[in-house]
Design a protein around this nucleic acid. Sequence first.
DNA 1: ATATATTCGTTGCGTATGCAACATAATAAT
DNA 2: ATTATTATGTTGCATACGCAACGAATATAT
Lengths: 154, 154
Amino acid sequence: MQFDKTLGKHITSLSYLLSKQLNKLLSERNSGITSDQFRLLSNLWRKDGITQQKLAIYIGRDRASVTRMITILEDIGIVTRIANNTDKRVNLIYLTKKGRELEPIAWQCVQESLSLVTKGFNTEEIALFEQLLIRASDNLKPVVCSTIKSKLSK
Amino acid sequence: MQFDKTLGKHITSLSYLLSKQLNKLLSERNSGITSDQFRLLSNLWRKDGITQQKLAIYIGRDRASVTRMITILEDIGIVTRIANNTDKRVNLIYLTKKGRELEPIAWQCVQESLSLVTKGFNTEEIALFEQLLIRASDNLKPVVCSTIKSKLSK
DNA sequence: ATATATTCGTTGCGTATGCAACATAATAAT
DNA sequence: ATTATTATGTTGCATACGCAACGAATATAT
């Protein structure tokens, strides 16, 4: 059996190459952020002032990961942790000026990377590809996320 | 703009969920290995006694990553580094008995994970999905790997 | 033959991630 | 009201990865 010829290999490779390509662009344009940090920030650009727990759910990682990412982003002056009076357990995460200014540059890198991915694809192929990816993800979500749920409620 | 609605998000999510699902199975069946280690081992099961450099190319990671993974796999008794007389720079990596015995268990986990991914897909859809993934990867490979090449030959 | 370049594996530093264990705070149960 | 449960963020330990720098070994150039 050869893993090279499985669907799993192709999925893994594509995702890996995409993040590497995006990291390359983000670095070349001196954005100062990584592709993973982009994933987190994209939620804050839409709406900031949210808790780390919510961010964790949005990006599909655990709270510990968000803690560490926010610490880094805070150190480089992109976000700030603001304590909350009504619920003293949580931090609300806000973008700084610098963090807000990053949005167009980062999005430009993402758009270019995605254009490269779909080079030579026609509109229907892109739509089809997207549907197949979503269906595949939806097949996995219940199984993988059941673990998370049971853990949260344990 | 919302990253959630981009192709990039769907690619990243699927790959992430797949590796998480595979890790879950590999752990439940007490394989003792991770999905990343599987990726490396799948090459050795096909043919062992190869150099770390070759393994790095096969799995698409750098030499440093392979060094670290092999160290771990050696510690848990799955592979061994054997010095080479004809070229004293290299280590040849061989599977141990334990490493060889792992193959069927690990493959079973991979097959089950992949079945789950394509649940509800007909044969044509699977083939199409595979083709789209390959085309997308092929779009990125030259760009991403050119960096590696120029770095290797620097 | 000797100097230069290249290859291979390793290590340091930084980032990303999971899981488990904790402390603190808020909520539910009694 | 007090106790038990749950939620939130943090930290420790383990794995994975890139890049850069390094030493040792090999190959190439002159």
